[in-house]
């Protein structure tokens, strides 16, 4: 069953590349817009610490993730795949976990890989680039996990986007705080270990909590029709 679910997720991912590419395009586009809007905030000297880059980068990552979350369960909900999962699967929990993992892989993980590029665009000092990638790698799982809970209860709504944002953005705040601070610390040459621990802890708590809550949320949404 686990293998079947993984295979399916992978096949869908390969055929709906837009789900991966569109959020990335959005991220790059909004980054560009920020730089155009506030050129004075960007310093291109690579050894100089930037005061705005970490915060802007993380805010844009949050918004991109939010955009991707809206469609996290939408297709499966509309096609009845979700329904079949809950009726027939031996352990629906595992399927949900796999879905969240694949969602992270197609958004958070790729954003983490792209992090240094964004950092360069935003004028982040070059010594902070590896830490940026690491911070995104540790922080984005929490975004996918907590976001999955919000997506699960709003998937039955016709226009759930704004409600989803209201539900999950406050929960994203801790990740934003420690993620941005980790990049700041790396720029200043401070130790980033406290932030590494904090981000890992947040993601672990989300991992313990979110799959159960998502499953409960999906059941509620499936009962709405």
């Amino acid at each position: 069953m686990i293998r079947g679910a993984l295979v399916r997720e992978w096949q869908v991912l390969l055929r709906a590349k837009g789900a991966v590419i569109n959020p990335l395009a959005f991220l790059l586009l909004t980054t560009m817009l920020f730089v155009i809007a506030a050129p004075d905030a960007i310093t291109t000297a690579t050894d100089e610490a930037s005061a705005v880059a970490p915060g802007v980068l993380w805010t844009l990552v949050l918004l991109t993730q939010l955009l991707a979350l809206d469609s996290m369960y939408r297709r499966d909900f509309d096609s009845g795949v979700l329904e079949q999962t809950l009726v027939s699967a031996q352990v629906p929990f595992v399927t949900v976990l796999i879905r969240i993992f694949m969602q992270w892989l197609s958004t958070g993980f790729i954003m983490a890989c792209l992090g240094p590029v964004l950092g360069v665009m935003l004028g982040l000092s070059s010594q902070a680039l590896p830490a940026t990638a690491l911070a995104l790698l540790l922080g984005t799982p929490a975004l996918s996990l907590l976001g999955s809970v919000g997506a699960s209860v709003t998937v039955g709504f016709n226009r759930g986007g704004v409600i989803l944002a209201l539900l999950v953005l406050p929960l994203f705040l801790p990740t934003l705080v420690f993620g941005a601070d980790m990049v700041m610390a790396a720029q200043a040459g401070r130790s980033v270990m406290p932030q590494v621990y904090a981000l890992s802890l947040i993601s672990l708590v989300a991992l313990a909590l979110a799959p159960f809550a998502t499953l409960a949320g999906l059941k509620i949404s499936l009962e709405m029709q």
Binding site: L146, V149, G150, V153, L167, P170, L171, L173, P174, I202, V205, L209, A213, A216, G217, I220
Partner: peptide, 14 residues
């Protein structure tokens, strides 16, 4: 109920 619960767990972290 579900969202209130998730929010409450997150309050200390926030």
């Amino acid at each position: 109920a579900l969202i209130a619960m998730v929010g409450t767990v997150n309050i200390p972290i926030i």
